[in-house]
């Protein structure tokens, strides 16, 4: 999942730094993530993991770092899986 997220981030994040070199908790906004790129990122993540990110998670915290994105995606993928 981490690799997929990094790939999406490299493709859609329009960051000022190389996505491969990002630390798990590095601040993505400081790395140049804009609100426009956030939306592109979200659409790509929904597509790649076949999930829908609900409105309650559409906030700055969800997109603040790779770790935050991973826990959001993991939670939503988990919800999808039959119990």
């Amino acid at each position: 999942m981490n690799e997929t997220l990094r790939r999406i981030l490299a493709q859609h994040g329009k960051l000022a730094v190389d996505a491969a070199s990002l630390g798990e908790t590095d601040d993505l906004y400081a790395a140049g993530l804009t609100s426009f790129a956030t939306v592109q990122l979200m659409l790509a993540i929904e597509d790649a993991f076949d999930i829908e990110i609900p409105d309650r998670l559409l906030n700055r915290r969800t997109f603040a770092s790779l770790a935050a994105l991973e826990s959001c995606v993991a939670g939503l993928v988990g919800e999808k899986e039959p119990a």
């Binding site: 426009f36 956030t38 939306v39």
Partner: peptide, 11 residues
């Protein structure tokens, strides 16, 4: 146009 972008995500 900023709102237009956000509306691609937000319902």
């Amino acid at each position: 146009s900023n709102s237009a972008t956000l509306l691609l995500a937000h319902r």
